[in-house]
Simulated assay, not measured.
Amino acid sequence: MKRISLTVLGLYVGMLAAFSQSDTDSTQYKRRKLTLEEANLISSYYHQDGNNAAVTGGIGSERLTDLSNSFELRLSKLDKKDRKHTFDIELGIDHYSSASSDKIDPKTVSSASSADTRLYPSLNWSVENKKGTTLGAGLSLSSEFDYKSIGINAMVAQKTRDKSGEFSLKLQAYLDQLKLILPVELRTGSNPEDEKDYPTASRNSFSASLSYSQIINQQLQVAFLTDVVYQHGYLGLPFHRIYFNDGSEGVENLPANRFKIPVGLRASYFAGDHLVLRGYYRYYHDSWGLDAHTASIEASVKLTPFFSVTPFYRYYTQNGVTYFAPFQAHDPGQEYYTSNYDLSAFHSHFFGAGFRVIPPHGVFGISHFNMLEVRYGRYEKSNSMQANIVSLNIRIK
């Protein structure tokens, strides 16, 4: 994991050196050249533990660690019609280790899914004209040992005549392929422990996201958000065991279709020069019978002109899907079943704080080193699962 962090940091420093030379020539020709607006390096460490692992039928260790690194670049230029083109480039690398995934084949020293590395590059482009109309498109990829994904998106946005509000529509599609890695005792063939040539299945997701943001006055801004999501294909995971009430064993089986409809409201209130309050609420419903509510609040407190603290809290509750039951509670005659506690009824709390410094002459006196932020969060679920996450964000402008 240290090697991954150093690799990403080296890439970041190298690309920064290529773009860090400021161009003071403000002629029309120079203004139309592709320039660096912003670069971000985001690194986080996540650790969780609990006793309801889906790999072992709803019991057993949920211990997992994940080291995530993301490098983001934003470039822009003006064309001959004074339209602004923006290019967002991201390269992400995650590495995780999981105690529960290692139980897919408990007879091995370490199964193939006990640890994995995920790569996820993406490229998004948008163009905005003087009338406040924005068009955009993007492509993303994601790859790990048992999962491949291709994502495409397109968007359109229109500001109101006075530029105080904006409507936007974004369409997305994710075309996924996953390897069907069964628990070792349920595999068939001459060599059930052979991990080569796994069969595959598809999972496709399509969504339309609508939003409207509005500046109410100098203190208050609001945004209304809604999505319509449709998923089709293999929507479970083949290594999630089920232990039935008659002593038999299988893997989770879920419907091949799922509709999701979340609706949300976001608001920001600027209470003077030293305090910004941000609130969020979302209601979620899907065709599997899951209803959920999310409410969060965040306060950005500016202690000095260059240093701020951001405490936050989020509450979440859901009723659980109709196909969930715990260990050895399912009847083998049921059509659909899962013991994944992420689909059960629970509530959770997520709280913590961030610390941000934006000195006028740059962090550590480095002029382009514009911002340094550290955040810590604690996550607690009502089923005794808990997690901690620490993240670091470095911004170059």
Rank of each mutant, 00 (worst) to 15 (best):
A292W: 08
Q158E: 07
N253G: 07
N370C: 03
L225T: 09
D88E: 12
S43G: 07
G58F: 05
Q48C: 01
S344G: 03
A39G: 11
A39E: 03
Y379D: 08
H85A: 12
Q334M: 11
I389F: 00
M155N: 14
N129G: 07
R375M: 09
A329N: 11
E373F: 04
N393R: 12
D146N: 14
L290D: 07
T133P: 00
L139P: 06
G233F: 14
L277N: 11
S44N: 00
L343P: 02
D331M: 11
M371V: 15
S97D: 10
N52A: 15
S296W: 06
S101F: 13
K33E: 09
Q386D: 14
I358L: 09
Y243H: 13
S348W: 01
S101D: 15
S114T: 03
T35I: 03
H293T: 06
F324L: 01
L16I: 01
N217L: 03
S382Y: 08
F306H: 15
L182Q: 05
P262W: 03
A53N: 08
Q386P: 01
E185R: 14
Y336H: 15
P192K: 03
A267Q: 08
S142T: 05
Y212L: 02
V222H: 05
H361L: 14
S20H: 05
I242M: 00
S142G: 15
T160K: 10
N52G: 08
A112K: 07
I396N: 02
K30T: 00
G138R: 13
G247V: 13
A223M: 13
R63W: 07
T134D: 01
D79S: 02
T133W: 04
D79L: 02
S113H: 05
R161I: 06
M155I: 01
S348F: 06
A17K: 00
L123Q: 06
N388W: 06
L372F: 15
N129M: 05
S367T: 13
Y29E: 12
V8G: 04
Q48A: 12
D194M: 05
T27W: 01
E252Q: 15
D49Y: 11
G362S: 05
F327H: 12
K77W: 12
S111E: 10
L169F: 11
F355Q: 04
Q219H: 14
I215H: 07
K381H: 04
V309N: 04
N52C: 08
A325W: 08
Y120R: 10
I42L: 06
D79P: 06
V13Q: 02
G354C: 00
Y323H: 10
A299N: 09
R83C: 08
A112N: 13
P192I: 09
V276T: 15
G58Y: 03
E193R: 15
L235H: 10
R31D: 14
T117I: 05
V156T: 11
G365R: 07
K260C: 12
V357S: 10
D342L: 07
A256G: 15
L36I: 01
I366W: 09
N245A: 01
S207I: 03
Q221R: 09
K159A: 11
D291T: 12
